[in-house]
Structure formats: C-alpha cells, structure tokens
C-alpha cells in the first residue's frame, strides 16, 4: 500500500467555475522523493494544499475521490490531526512566517511550542534543524529582516523541525541562489534517505534530474506524464505544453536536427550533455 494515495481526486475552489484538480490518481511510496512540475495554473499548489489537508478542510470547495496518507483518509480527519503527519512549506515564505516572533530561532520553535514539546527537547531540535539547513548564523535575526532566499530557508526549517512523515514543498528554492538551491535539494534527498516521503514542486529541471526519484508532469489539473526524471524531462510533449526544460535538452534537440547530437537519449544534466557531445559519433569539440 502506497504511503500517499490519491484516488480519482477532483477538486473545485468555492469561487472557481471549473475544477483545478481533475481526476488525479497518484501513489507515492514511503521514502520516495517526487518532483512535481508544470506550467503556471497546472494545479501544483492546489495539489500541495490537498496533500497538506488545507484542501478541502481550510479552503472548503467541492471535492470528490479519496486522499489517503499513511492509511488515513483526509475526509475522515481534522486538519489539526493531519498536520502532525504532513508539513507544507509555502510557495511564498512571507505568507508562512507567523509574524508573532521576533527572532528566527523563536519562529522555528513556534510549531513545536504549539504541540507542547518540552523546552529542552525543543531547543535541541531547533538547533539541529538550523544546522541542517545552514542558517545557524540567522538565529537572532528578525524573520522580516532577511532576504527572500534566507526567508525561504527559515520557512523550510520551521517545517523540517516538526519531523513530518510527509514533507510537501511548494517551490522551496524559487528565491535562492544556485548554492542555496543545491543545498536544499541535498537536504531533502537526505530526508528521503532517512524515510521521509517528499513531494516537491519545482521548476529547476537540472536539480530534479539529479535528486528526485520520480517526476510528475501536471498540466491543466491532470497528470500529463509520470516516470523516471530522464524519461519525463526529455519528452517532446513538455515544451509543446509550455513546460520549462533544461537548456541541455533543448540544445541537444536542436543539435540532433543538425546532425550534431547522435545519441538516442537526450540529456538533462551537464554531465549527460558533455558525455553525449564528446562520445563517438557525437558532435566533436574543437
């Protein structure tokens, strides 16, 4: 039995005319790291909200089908039960930061306070989580004095500290520099290795290819494709539907037409591209 199980999930917000999620079927195994990608308006954030229980418990609206996490049905749970298992880092960290705390340290401790974790354990867990995401030096800063990328790290840390069994991340690196992005992917991969199940919405194709186990391509509320990162990320269908793809894939596709790329498989990462262009029969270097 999959850890996350969506069966024929269709969902409409209270004020929209058409469903945002249309008959979604999705299974995620425990400890699996899934990347969700898709154009704006595909339903990615709504999918995150459905995983985190905000859809439909907070947003209301009309839902059909069944959402299960760890064998528990969303329809039979309350939001406060649900969030003990599932943590969501919002797309915009500004919307997540509580506004009730003066320092980053307190902000990260906020969730633990709310579930009554003893003071000493709380301190240790906050320290540990901050070390994991590399933000110890921000501990005494105000959450509002941080740059966008730093705020995103704080938002991620405040979820990781709760040790959810399912971690849902909605574009967690959108405001980060490349090193920050790589580190976040690394941390998330590590969490998955330790058994945490991860669903991450991301546009950064090269890092998805490096780190994720499986990719779901979402389009207009439906699953367009799913499979191994390399298969999905190099599919001709993606650019046609407005998905962002790796520059390595698009340059190799064009090179293929000019006879400069002779491999069957298109590349997603730098290494794959370099290998493909230099290997026998590929385009040569000069």
């Amino acid at each position: 039995m999959a850890f996350v199980n969506f069966q024929n999930v269709t969902y409409k917000y209270p004020l929209t005319k058409t469903p945002v999620l249309k008959n979604i079927n999705l299974q995620v195994n425990e400890g699996e790291f899934i990347a969700v990608m898709g154009p704006n308006g595909a339903g990615k954030s709504t999918l995150c909200y459905a995983l985190a229980g905000f859809v439909p418990h907070f947003f209301k609206g009309e839902i059909s089908g069944e959402i299960e996490v760890d064998g528990k049905k969303s329809s039979e749970s309350t939001l406060d039960e649900w969030v003990l298992n599932v943590g969501l880092a919002f797309q915009n960290p500004f919307n997540q930061i509580s506004g009730a705390k003066y320092t980053v340290f307190e902000e990260i401790a906020f969730g633990l306070e709310n579930i009554g974790v003893p003071r000493n354990e709380m301190k240790d867990r906050v320290d540990e989580a901050m070390a994991l995401t590399g933000i110890r030096d921000l501990a005494d800063r105000s959450p509002y004095s941080l740059s966008g990328g730093q705020q995103q790290r704080v938002a991620l840390t405040s979820i990781l500290v709760m040790r959810p069994r399912l971690l849902v991340l909605d574009e967690p690196t959108s405001q980060m520099d490349p090193i920050g992005t790589r580190e976040v992917f690394g941390v998330v991969r590590k969490m998955a290795e330790e058994g945490m199940t991860v669903v991450m919405v991301e546009h950064k194709v090269e890092w998805i290819a490096h780190f994720a186990d499986r990719v779901i391509a979402l389009n207009e509320g439906q699953v367009l494709m799913e499979g191994k990162p390399n298969e999905v990320l190099t599919a001709d269908l993606l650019p046609e539907k407005g998905f962002g793809i790796s520059r390595y894939t698009s340059v190799a596709r064009q090179a293929q037409q000019q006879g400069l790329w002779k491999q069957k498989q298109l590349p997603v990462t730098l290494f794959e591209a370099a290998e493909g262009f230099t290997s026998k029969g590929g385009g040569g270097s000069n």
Partner: peptide
C-alpha cells in the same frame, strides 16, 4: 558569490570550446 555560469557556458567549457558561449 555562489553564482554558476549559464548552463551552456558550463557545457562549452567542459567540451573545451575556445570562446565563451552564452546561448544556444
């Protein structure tokens, strides 16, 4: 300052292209 060159610039370098290329 934690900035990587563009993807194709890195690829060009790795392939030993003489000039710095910045687009497709």
């Amino acid at each position: 300052t934690y900035v990587d060159p563009p993807q194709l610039t890195r690829l060009g370098k790795m392939l030993g292209l003489k000039a710095t290329v910045i687009n497709q």
